[in-house]
Design a binder for these strands. Structure first.
Lengths: 176, 176
DNA sequence: GTGAATTATTTTATACTTAAAATATAATTC
DNA sequence: GAATTATATTTTAAGTATAAAATAATTCAC
């Protein structure tokens, strides 16, 4: 706090240095991050719909399962997708209904079950993923290899920072 | 498509250079971006609820209006918040009901109206925004000033890239 | 080993979100 | 100026999302 100016608020552009001022840098960073995220998410969502008549959350769930051939529990899915547990219930129900996913009751723990891809689910996912990758590649085509490396590194740092400096219950993670 | 290995799949870590391989760099970047976004969003959402008993979309709408003292049309709100127009209708309805926002029919165009903060809305927003800013600052405390500048710049580049290289209907933007 | 905590999941109620269709008004074209 | 086209918003139907309460099964402590 207290980046307050003493005198009159300066314009956000400093004529002396030609650089942008640091005022509320964190907030601007967060908004830009959100914009990028929304932008990409929107494109992917639209493309998934027009090309494969499916939705982003479904695709995400399939992607998680594809990475874990042995299946995942509902809680694991919830943690990795960073959504509430109740959400996973409904999402899984729909995918089971579509025949893309199956629930296998756990042998040792009668509370939980492993969720995994069916053959049809695997097939559907494999049909989508190359195009999905292409969309992402296209959207990032304006960045150099080095830009991406650097961005990846800085976002890693941000992720750590958020984890450390927001002392409350953390859900699990995504994969990145 | 066809990033398939011919032979045995290499480890993602290149022993020669000590650097991480570039394989699917775009995808990893996207996933990490999404993780950061979800992480921050989750914290803010939770904090808004516990501290002010409100939600992120409501806060966002108020924030947009706060930046535009003359008010915004539904379409402008939709573009800036990067959500569907139908979404704004419901959100605005709820905020009107809470007395934080008002609709003023446009004089020249009977289809549209200006949405703006009521006195109560302005007051409520002003009460929330300092804390909100603090949360963001805290979460980013692990980044140096320079990290943030660089991140902001790279995300700007990414934003441009997405706009250019995804030839379909674009919505408007956020502010950053 | 019984009761208290813990964990895994589902249910509930409500809010948010989208895409697409519908409505209503405005602008353009001929 | 009537017909077409475009724009601004709302409605609709379905899906996604949350937080909190409810269920059910496991584990821990005694």
């Amino acid at each position: 706090m207290s980046e307050q100016r003493q005198v009159a608020p300066l314009p956000a552009n400093d004529r002396e240095t030609g650089t942008t001022r640091d005022d509320k840098l964190e907030l601007r960073l967060w908004l830009r991050l959100l914009t990028c995220s929304n932008l990409i998410e929107g494109k992917v969502r639209g493309a998934l719909r027009t090309r494969f008549d499916t939705t982003l959350p479904r695709f995400d769930l399939l992607a998680q399962l594809d990475r874990s051939p042995d299946g995942l529990t509902m809680s694991e899915l919830s943690a990795r997708m960073m959504v509430s547990n109740g959400n996973i219930t409904g999402l899984t129900d729909r995918l089971v209904e579509e025949g893309l996913v199956k629930r296998t009751p756990s042998a040792r723990d009668r509370r939980s079950s492993q969720v995994s891809l069916t053959a049809a689910g695997k097939k559907a996912f494999d049909a989508m993923t190359p195009e999905h990758e292409l969309w992402i590649d296209e959207m990032m085509a304006g960045l150099s290899r080095q830009d991406m490396q650097q961005l990846l590194q800085l976002l890693g740092k941000l992720k750590q920072s958020v984890h450390r400096n927001a002392a409350d219950a953390d859900k699990g993670e995504n994969g990145e």
